[in-house]
Design a protein around this nucleic acid. Structure first.
Length: 275
DNA sequence: CATCATACCTGTTCGC
DNA sequence: TGCGAACAGGTATGAT
C-alpha cells in the first residue's frame, strides 16, 4: 500500500513530529522487523538526534547524528505515530523510539512485513532493494528516453514491468492500474510491444497521477494513515482500483477484474483493448 | 541475466 | 451459522 505518494506523506508528517528529538531508548518488541541484530540496533541509537527525514522511492530515511541512517520500509501496513512510553502497547506495535522529552515514536504493523535497518549515512544505496532501484517517478532521471529504452528489452507484461522497482521506482499496484487505465493500455501487453506513442502516454500518465496523488496526500483504501493519523485524499480520484463491476468513467463499459503478475488487476476491457 | 513462484504475515471477505 | 480457503500486496529469495 504505501506507494511513493503515501510514503512521501508519511515523510512530511513525520518530519513535523520528530525533528530534533533525541533518542533515549529503543524498544524492539518484534525483532524480525529489524534487519541485523536488534540489540545492537537499539544500543547504537541511544543519544542520537533525528536531524532530517528523507525519502527514496518507497523507503524512509531517518538521518541521525553520528552519521547514522535508519532505512525504513513500510511494505504493506507499516505506520508511525507519536505516542507516550506510558501508553499501553497495541497488539501490533513492534518498535518504540523513546525520546528524551518524554514522547515516543511507535512503529505499528499489522502484518509485520515492514523492515528497518541501521546503516552508516551514505551507504544506504548499497543495501539490497535500494542498490538496483530504477529512477523515481517524477525525478529528473526518469526521462521519456530512459523509459523507452527500459521498456524496449522487457518481454514481460507492462503491469509486471511497472511494478518492477528496478525499471521505475515508486509505483505499486494501485497507481499501476490507474496509469494503465489513463493511458488506455491493456495490462498484459508485453512491455516491448508498446508503440512510442503509447509509451509517451504512459509516461505522462505516471507523472500526472503520482504528482496529483502526492498533492492529495496519498490514497487510503484500506488502512493507510500518515504519522498524524490522517487519511489520504486521492481515493476519490481512483478510476479503476476498487471499482470492478462498476462503469468505466470514460466509455461506460463494465470494469473487469483479473489477475496479472500475481496481483488483482482492474481495467476497462473496451478502453484498454488488446492491440 | 531475466523471469517467475513462493515466503513472509494477519485481518477480512468469500464460498459452501 | 460456521469454518476453512482465498485474498489483500511490496519485496527478498530461491528456482528455472
Amino acid at each position: 500500500m504505501p506507494e511513493m505518494p503515501e510514503v512521501e506523506t508519511v515523510r512530511k508528517t513525520l518530519s513535523e513530529i520528530v525533528l530534533g528529538k533525541i533518542i533515549k531508548e529503543v524498544k524492539v518488541w518484534y525483532p524480525n522487523i529489524i534487519i541485523g541484530d536488534s540489540e545492537s540496533f537499539s544500543d547504537q541509537l541511544k543519544e542520537k538526534q533525528i536531524i532530517k527525514v528523507d525519502r527514496y522511492a518507497k523507503f524512509l530515511l531517518f538521518r541521525l547524528s553520528s552519521n547514522l541512517t535508519i532505512v525504513s520500509h513500510l511494505r504493506m501496513e507499516g505506520k508511525y505515530r507519536l505516542a507516550s512510553p506510558q501508553d499501553a502497547k497495541d497488539k501490533h506495535d513492534h518498535v518504540e523510539f523513546i525520546f528524551t522529552d518524554g514522547t515516543s515514536l511507535r512503529y505499528n504493523d499489522v502484518r509485520k512485513f515492514g523492515r528497518m535497518q541501521l546503516v552508516k549515512t551514505g551507504t544506504e544505496k548499497e543495501r539490497t532493494g535500494i542498490k538496483k532501484l530504477g529512477p523515481e517517478a517524477l525525478s529528473d532521471d526518469f526521462t521519456l528516453s530512459y523509459f523507452k529504452q527500459a521498456l524496449k528489452n522487457k518481454k514481460k507484461n507492462i503491469k509486471a514491468t511497472l511494478l518492477d522497482q528496478d525499471v521505475v521506482s515508486g509505483l505499486g499496484n494501485i497507481y499501476v492500474d490507474e496509469t494503465l487505465w489513463l493511458s488506455e493500455i491493456y495490462p498484459e501487453r508485453p512491455a516491448n510491444s508498446l508503440t512510442d506513442n503509447e509509451i509517451k502516454k504512459l509516461y505522462l500518465a505516471i507523472n500526472q497521477i503520482i504528482s496529483q496523488a502526492i498533492k492529495e496526500r496519498g490514497t487510503t483504501v484500506h488502512t493507510f494513515l500518515d504519522a498524524e493519523g490522517q487519511t489520504g485524499g486521492y481515493q476519490k480520484h481512483l478510476k479503476v482500483y476498487g471499482r470492478a463491476g462498476e462503469k468505466c468513467f470514460r466509455c461506460g463499459n463494465v470494469l473487469q477484474k483479473t489477475r496479472v503478475a500475481g496481483r488483482g488487476t482492474t481495467f476497462c476491457p473496451k478502453c484498454q483493448e488488446v492491440k
